[in-house]
Amino acid sequence: MSHQLLAAGTNADAISRETVFWILAILATGAALTMILVRRAVHCALMLAVVMLCLATMYAMQGAPFLAFVQIIVYTGAVLMLFLFVLMLIGIHSSDSIVETIKGQRLAAGLAAIGLMVLLSLGIGHAALGPPTHQNDALNGSGNMPGIAQLIFSTYVFPFEVTGALLITAALGAMVLAHRERTSPKPTQRDLVARRLASGHLAPDPSPGVYALHDAADRPALLPDGSTAPESVSTALAQRLVEDEEPPAVMKEVES
């Protein structure tokens, strides 16, 4: 039973498999093309997620369920999220301009890509590739996971150990690279209090909305003395202000 579950996806009949393949293929290709054409980085990340999920399904179709789940959990779930975190940290607004700075780069890239594609297709075309269908049972004879485990811990145990070391090294490296050296000693609580007493601004600012007249996100908050707090409107919203639209009365104050 578990054997059959693990071998799931190999027992579907040919037409459905072919249909699923073509849908996934077109989806993946489209997502990849979109990925390289969009301007905003976040959109690119989302398209990459789509591609990865399609690929995960294809792994499952080819009798690699373990790999499919690892793809979703590790690749899409961890690696892509890591990308998004870094995006948020450093460049959510960063977008490329359409204009290409290096002369002939796009043309050369296109030519090289077409050339490589042709060559690889030629190579594949000449290689002897056979149908897989009746081999899936032999493939997962005792189950996919035990089979992979068998290989990892006997034939490929050395690469396994080495990649373990690689991961440790990568983690250490990331820590070292992202580390910020303090140029001044970390202020203790006593220092913070002293700073606050010296600034004259003793009490914390009231939480947002205390003096609010409106609760729209594009309206600034009011300060106790009646003035508006310009930082309370997100710059993303401030950027989206359409030029010829009459700004709301309070927004005018923000910009003045």
Partner: peptide, 17 residues
């Protein structure tokens, strides 16, 4: 430009294939 160098590597890879 890193991208020029990447282009050369790509083209070189194509030549190797």
């Amino acid at each position: 430009f890193v991208r020029s160098y990447a282009l050369y590597m790509f083209a070189g890879g194509a030549v190797l294939v």
